[in-house]
Amino acid sequence: MNEPQPATLKAENEQLKAELAQVKAATNQYLQNVAHQLTAPLGAIKWSIEALKDPRVPLSRKSKLLSSIYSQATILVHLIKNFALMSNLEADLELGQFREKPEPIDVMKLAINLANDFQPQASEQGLKILVDEVAFSNVFGSKRLAIEKNLVAQAISNVLENAVKYADSDGTIRVSAWSDDSHVGIVVESSGIPISDKERVNIFARGFRGAAARQKVAAGTGIGLYLASRVMTLHEGSIQLETSGRVSRFALIFPRKRLR
C-alpha cells in the first residue's frame, strides 16, 4: 500500500481547515440570525409593556400595544416550537427514533384555530385569513385525519406564517382543503412576492431563503418550510408548491388511508 505523500496530506489538511472555517462562518451566521429572531419579539414586548406603564402615552394608543404584545408572543412561541422541533427531528434523523403516535383530528377545527392565532399578526399588515369551511366539509365531511397533531399544526403554522410575512398588504390568505382518489390535503393560498423556478427547487431545503424573501424580510431562519416538509414525510405525505405569477399555493398532502 502506498503511503500518502506529505504534500498530499498538507493539501488535504488545508482543504479540511477551509471547510471547517466555512461551517463555522455558516454556524455564526445562523446563530446571529436565531439571536435576532428571538431578541426582536422579546425586545418589542418589553418596550410595549414599558410604554403601557408610561402615563405620558395616551390611553387611546395603548390598545395597539396590547395587540402587538399578543402578536409578538405568538411569534415567539412559534419560533421556540420550531427550534425544538428542529432539534427533535435532527435527533431522529441520526437515530431513527421517531415513533408515530397519530390521533384522529378534526382538520377544519385545527385550521380555524391556527388561522385565529395568526390573524392579529396578519391584521397588522391589512391581511385577512379566510378558512374555506365548505371546501373542508366537502373533502373531510365528518371524517378525521390520523396525524401527530402538534407536528402537523407546526407544519401548517410555518406555511401560514410565511404567507403572512410575504403576502401583499391588504390581501387575503385562503386556507382550504383538496383531494383526489388517493390523497387529501390542506392548501394555503396567497398572493405576494413571486417565487422563481430556481427558488422553487430549493424552497424546502434547510436554511434556504429566496432573494426576494430576504429583501422583503431581512431576518429569518430558513427552517420553516424545511420542517414542514420533514413533518409531511413522517406522515408518508408531501408538501407541494404551485405558483402562478404572484399567487403561491402550498399544499400539505396526506395519504387518504389516514382518514378515520
Binding site: S48, A51, V57, L65, S68, E124
Partner: peptide, 17 residues
C-alpha cells in the same frame, strides 16, 4: 425598521413628548 412594531413604543413615547 422592517419590524415597525419594535419601534412603535419608542415612537409613541417621543410623540407624547
Amino acid at each position: 425598521d422592517d419590524e415597525p412594531f419594535f419601534t412603535e413604543p419608542l415612537r409613541l413615547l417621543l410623540e407624547a413628548k
